[in-house]
Nucleic acid binder design. Structure first.
Lengths: 252, 252
DNA sequence: CCAAAAGTGTTGAAGTTACACCCATGC
DNA sequence: GCATGGGTGTAACTTCAACACTTTTGG
């Protein structure tokens, strides 16, 4: 192929590689994930929900692509974003409804695509999902309610959940899912949602407080029909202090 | 593009995606990794050593490709093989010597390639490296001696080392690096090599033996100029027992 | 008998688990 | 005053870290 053409193609879409983002949120009850709805196709069949993702450009690296796609589809910039894994089964685009949909949005709908999955944690209220070009709608879905997704996205979601479980045992990334001010019960519920197992309330609180990675405010909840709970903020400085000294065990 | 052509291309090389394998060994002293030597190029400059890796075929998935490449380059089949991450900086093929070399072996040497890295642990003596088509030589190099590699392979190696460190804290995969029969000192040295830090001898032995994942043989070392040490084998059954009960902490 | 690596126990500190009742608020 | 979730302490147990000397062999 001509080299000049190649140069021109540097900032064109690469039809062989995509990124998909698994963006987790927390609604104070359970873990959620951001999905797009591709809308009904001609046959009115097939799975409509998918992870937000798209092809990469030739002049950007994978992390940049993930950030760009995330920005384009959700408006979020500069957030914690980490690679999960690459997925590339030749049959990942084997469902008829997926193929049909791709034909409507891609220049090379039959091309084999390798996708690199990323995951991210965001504060749900900071972002009101807005459907982008090819998404008919975008919104949060409770992860426990999901049992199928487009392409191999269900598999990707499972891998991301697993990664999140591992990661939260090593880094206190869960705070990204909570508002600035939160209660220990909310944090507790968050950890239980992610780890999918019950954690002893007292032991959990003690552990968090011994680590000193939360700072208690002089403020309490208001308007709740029970004893109002203490509000806390994440102590980022203390966390940096801990990790600089080689601490990496937030095991539960 | 014509669909018939696409079909024909199913079992052709995909010029956009490769796999690279980081194959670790242990020479009873230190951790080693299998590298290939691409030989001198015209200018007699540039880095010669690289990780074994190659383009994938369109009709195989990534894991299969990694296994095939590993098999082709090393003769090893059906071994523990796990994805590290995808690497795809647009400038990963920016060194002149790398570009020059690619021209000599690839149909589309200028194409942007995303690579998916895998790592694996093998018993060094079970495999005598044999150089494949485009490798002039293949052999084991101590990981501590490596400070540059072709493409972004140095970066990939670091990521694989990190993955190995994490992994060995969760699963006793180190046994893949040792011969059938080994001593606790060998295992001890192996863990120190991987984790890159000293471990207390007595505590290490106690931990391993309390887990009961090694079985002592009635056999001892012979011909060593010091007290001969007890030989052990890995107890796979016990390991399965432990993991089935949800045990996943081989922390050191 | 010397060099070299194998092998072995104890103690104090820290962390983990399990567990049940009173408290403050809104309605 | 009642329903709701918030908040608290202790004791038994397990795990972890630190540490030094004796043993067996080959040469």
């Amino acid at each position: 192929m001509d080299k000049e053409l190649k140069k021109v193609n540097q900032n064109e879409l690469n039809p062989h590689v995509s990124v998909d983002c698994v963006i987790f949120g927390f609604d104070m009850e359970k873990l959620t994930v951001l999905l797009i709805d591709r809308g009904r196709n001609k046959s009115d069949k097939g799975i409509k929900l998918a992870l937000p993702g798209n092809l990469i450009y030739n002049n950007e690296n994978l992390d940049q692509a993930a950030n760009r796609v995330l920005d384009e589809l959700t408006g979020l910039k500069d957030i914690y974003l980490e690679q999960v894994a690459a997925f590339g089964n030749p049959d990942r685009i084997s469902k008829d409804s997926d193929r049909e949909w791709l034909k409507s949005i891609r220049a090379e709908p039959e091309a084999r695509v390798i996708t690199v999955a990323y995951f991210s944690l965001v504060k749900m209220p900071d972002y009101l999902p807005q459907a982008s070009s090819f998404a008919k709608r975008a919104g949060w879905t409770s992860v426990t309610e999901i049992n199928e997704l487009a392409f191999d996205h269900y598999e990707i979601l499972q891998a991301a959940k697993e990664k999140l479980k591992q990661k939260i045992k090593i880094q206190p990334i869960g705070f990204n899912l909570l508002p600035e001010k939160f209660t220990l019960s909310q944090l507790h519920r968050l950890y239980e949602s992610i780890l999918e197992k019950p954690l002893d309330k007292r032991n959990f609180r003690r552990k968090i407080q011994n680590l000193e990675i939360v700072t208690s405010l002089k403020e309490k909840q208001r308007g709740v029909p029970h004893k109002p709970s203490q509000l806390f903020v994440f102590n980022e400085e203390r966390y940096r202090e801990l990790t600089e000294n080689g601490f990496d065990n937030f095991d539960f």
